[in-house]
Design a protein around this nucleic acid. Structure first.
Lengths: 158, 158
DNA sequence: CAGAAAGTGTTATATCATAACAAACGAGTT
DNA sequence: AACTCGTTTGTTATGATATAACACTTTCTG
């Protein structure tokens, strides 16, 4: 995954790549990459933005793949645990990971105008938060880093 | 506010200080620091942790200050707008600000064992996120920075 | 004081998420 | 192929978080 954030790119290519990576990951780890899980990841990849669980569920339902909330939440939970999907806490919504496989502390830029979401790699062990944690004696296990603002496209347009 | 994060401190003093600061702020800005708003801030200050809106509402209700969700949400919204309360997105919960008045991009350390929350000041304009945003041409308006982990007290105890 | 603005009380409902249990499926074994 | 254990899915029900809308009251302002 080399394209950055909001830059235009061949999206069908990046969908295929990530699907293949997920396939490979599950094979390696002996995890089941089932129809529902596969489809949820595809849906998230084909949108370039965060989707709510119920939006995903609606699409699944239209295809006969389950219509009750737990179906979507379980798939999202699975994809989150294997690192191919992240939750955007600010939006209560979910996005496909753009650096799957890498161990990374994800950081997100969320456009409040078009709802697109770009992921930036954060190094977990620098920055003022890490410094403050060290000073306070706090052990960081997970981080949520999200910036809300305006993406370059929307800025240009308006 | 000089004590840092998880360090012990004279809490009644810091409650009084912040209440006075809120009082003064509202007077300056000609905003109404009403009974409900005052009480919500007091409740949040007297706990040193994040409370859900419904937990706050329960306490309000016990005192005859309104028992329906909008009462709590409106007070939280007001206190958030004037910068005396922050929402912890990860927990869907609210904490009193420990640097009220200062313009600051808050960052939080959340102990997953005791639920205490400490606020660290982040400088919004450095760190890898700000750098990534600049590179991408993204304009940051607000940030959510939250670290989940174990606080020094819990680490020592267990 | 009168009118306007802001805040509150209340009903109803939207939105996000999980518990619990039964049925179906999948991978490995006999 | 049938067996069996663990995983996944389907389904019902409910819990948890949050807001819309409107009537009423309080507070501000002229």
């Amino acid at each position: 995954m080399s394209h950055s954030g909001f830059a235009p790119h061949d999206h069908s290519h990046c969908i295929a790549d990530t699907m293949a990576a997920a396939e490979a990951h599950c094979a390696r780890e002996k995890l089941q990459f089932t129809k529902v899980r596969r489809r949820v990841l595809e849906i998230l990849l084909s949108e370039h933005k965060a989707l709510g669980a119920y939006q995903i569920l609606e699409k699944l339902g239209a295809e006969g793949l389950g219509s009750q909330p737990p179906v979507a939440y379980r798939a999202l939970d699975f994809l989150g645990r294997i690192g191919f999907v992240h939750k955007i806490e600010k939006l209560n919504a979910y996005v496909a990971c753009s650096q799957p496989g890498d161990a990374h502390a994800p950081a997100f830029m969320i456009c409040r105008l078009c709802d697109s979401v770009a992921e930036a790699a954060e190094s977990p062990n620098d920055g003022s938060l890490a410094h403050a944690a060290q000073t306070a004696g706090f052990t960081i296990e997970k981080t949520v880093v999200e910036a809300e603002g305006v993406c370059p496209d929307c800025r240009t347009r308006g």
